[in-house]
């Protein structure tokens, strides 16, 4: 009797979950719309331009033409790798240091790290240029001291410095998050089992914060390899990276298709590096539980 009445009032589980599904799907509509309009469609355009010539005929020539830009690709990859490595070397110990401070100090340090991110990337890069330029603050100071000015702007060093300066917070924050999630008991357990400070670092802290490192490396490497603004400003136009080349190619209608091909290749490069990074974190099992 009771069962019967229950069946009458409550909708069967199947239809309830169906309703929920419809609701869930509806909730995704705005995002789906956005994705199609602003991500999928432009990608298709890139694909289309990459594999057609100026008259809209199918062609591989754009891809084969990219051979002349091999050096640009190599330089871009090298710059991004170096900048990422420097960010990691500076960022990892910094994040560790931050995570060992008191709650209050952690908050202050977080704000200090985040502060530059509230300012637009372009403005920050300009500011850095103003500091390092020939007539900039640093070199004026050097000149007043009777020293030779440092030609940082326009050098490889300047561009890498710009990348590190702009993207360092993106390395520090995910590693810091992973560090704060790291239970202090693991560190005590490692001391208990015979690890000194360094061994605790390499055998416990690093493996358990690898997920943060993977996010940090990804978040620095991807913008570094595709930047054009930093190299334009801090390279003083003398250093051409993939981003600069693509920008230039797209500014001229006749090289539109080569630009699309170059964009495509770079996307594939980034995709490959992301896959490698994810694989790396899976194998080491460094995911924080």
């Amino acid at each position: 009797m009771k069962k019967h009445s229950l069946r009458k009032t409550d909708p069967p589980p199947a239809s309830r979950s169906a309703q929920r599904n419809i609701f869930q799907q509806l909730a995704a509509v705005p995002h789906a719309f956005w994705t199609v309009l602003f991500i999928a469609a432009p990608m298709l355009f890139v694909l289309y331009f990459a594999f057609t010539d100026g008259n809209g005929n199918f062609s591989f020539s754009n891809i084969t033409d990219l051979g002349q830009y091999t050096n640009v690709f190599i330089l871009s990859i090298a710059f991004a790798l170096i900048a990422t490595a420097i960010c990691l070397i500076i960022g990892y110990p910094l994040a560790y240091f931050m995570s060992r401070q008191s709650q209050r100090a952690q908050k202050i340090l977080m704000v200090l790290i985040m502060l530059p991110m509230w300012c637009n990337l372009l403005i920050r890069t300009y500011a850095l240029m103003a500091l390092l330029d020939n007539g900039g603050l640093l070199n004026s100071l050097l000149k007043n001291l009777g020293l030779e000015p440092l030609p940082i702007v326009g050098s490889y060093f300047g561009v890498i410095l710009g990348m590190v300066y702009d993207f360092l917070p993106y390395m520090v924050l995910p590693i810091f998050t992973a560090m704060t999630k790291l239970d202090y008991r693991y560190i005590e357990a490692s001391h208990d089992l015979g690890c000194n400070g360094l061994q605790t670092m390499t055998r416990v802290v690093m493996p358990l914060t690898l997920s943060g490192v993977v996010s940090g490396v990804t978040m620095v490497f991807v913008p570094s390899i595709s930047t054009f603004y930093i190299s334009q400003k801090l390279g003083a136009g003398k250093i051409d990276l993939v981003g600069d080349t693509i920008e230039r190619l797209f500014q001229n209608v006749s090289t539109y298709n080569v630009g699309a091909a170059m964009s495509l290749v770079m996307m594939i490069l980034i995709l490959i590096s992301l896959t490698i990074m994810n694989k790396f974190s899976d194998e080491e099992g460094g995911m924080v539980p």
Partner: peptide, 29 residues
Amino acid sequence: PPYRRLVNTVFQKYALFPHLNVYENVAFG
């Protein structure tokens, strides 16, 4: 320091290393 004492600890809630399997956890020391 703890790592120089002839003492080992079974921690409250165990504190097993999540990045290592059973064998490697036991082999750690």
